[in-house]
Computed example of a mutant assay.
Amino acid sequence: MPHDHAHSDAGPGRLSPKEARRITGQATAFSVSVATILVVTKLAAWWLSGSVAILASLADSALDLAASLITFFAIRFAAEPADREHRFGHGKAEAFASFLQALFVALSAGLLLREAWQHYVEPREITNGGWAIAVMVLSMVLTAGLIWFQTRAVSKTGSVAVSGDRAHYTADLASNVAVIAGVAAAAFLAVPLADPIVGAVVALWLFWSAWQVARGALDQMLDRELPDGERDKIIAIAEDDERVIDVHQVRTRAAGPLIHIQMHMDLDPKLTLEAAHEIVVAAENRLLSHYPAADIIIHPDPHGKAEPHGLAFMQSGGDPEAVKDA
Rank of each mutant, 00 (worst) to 15 (best):
A236V: 02
E80W: 05
S8V: 06
R166C: 03
D4L: 04
H3G: 06
G317P: 00
L267V: 03
I296N: 02
M263Y: 07
V162Q: 02
A181F: 07
V141T: 11
A144T: 14
T127G: 09
A190I: 00
D165F: 02
Q315A: 12
S155Q: 13
V179P: 03
L193D: 12
G229P: 06
A82H: 10
A282C: 04
L311P: 04
G130M: 11
E225C: 09
R243E: 14
G199C: 08
S31D: 03
S51G: 03
T28F: 01
G318T: 10
H86S: 11
T272V: 10
D9E: 07
V213F: 08
W117E: 14
A293E: 06
A236S: 13
A116L: 00
V179S: 09
A132E: 12
G317T: 11
D172V: 06
Y291A: 02
S139A: 15
I245S: 02
D223R: 01
R286A: 10
F88T: 09
F99V: 12
E242G: 04
L193G: 09
E80C: 08
G229V: 13
A167M: 15
A27H: 06
M136W: 06
L206P: 09
D219E: 15
M221C: 00
H119C: 05
R152P: 11
H290F: 15
A78E: 03
A312L: 07
Y120W: 12
K18L: 05
K92V: 14
A66C: 00
H277Q: 04
A283N: 08
D325V: 01
M265Y: 05
I147T: 04
A185T: 00
I70W: 06
A282Q: 13
A322N: 07
I298M: 01
F188N: 00
I147N: 12
D240T: 07
G158C: 11
K233A: 14
I279H: 10
M314A: 13
Q262Y: 04
K42M: 11
M1D: 00
L100K: 03
L204D: 02
I259L: 02
M140H: 01
E321S: 07
R76W: 04
V280I: 11
A153E: 08
V105C: 06
R14I: 04
I235R: 15
A10K: 10
R253F: 07
D232T: 14
A217M: 08
A66K: 01
D301A: 05
L273M: 08
L43E: 06
A174Y: 14
V201L: 13
F73R: 14
F30V: 01
F72R: 05
I133V: 15
E225P: 10
T24N: 11
D325K: 14
L111E: 08
G164M: 05
A62M: 12
G91L: 04
S57W: 04
T71I: 15
L267T: 02
K92D: 09
Q101E: 15
K233E: 13
V177G: 04
L63H: 04
E230G: 12
S155K: 14
A10S: 15
L206V: 12
Q212L: 03
V52T: 10
R14H: 15
P320F: 10
V160S: 07
I261P: 10
D83A: 08
R84V: 11
H5K: 09
A276W: 02
A181P: 12
D228P: 05
R166I: 10
S159P: 09
Q262I: 01
Q101R: 09
E19D: 14
N128W: 11
A35Q: 12
L173P: 02
S139E: 04
A153P: 03
F313R: 00
I54F: 05
D60T: 02
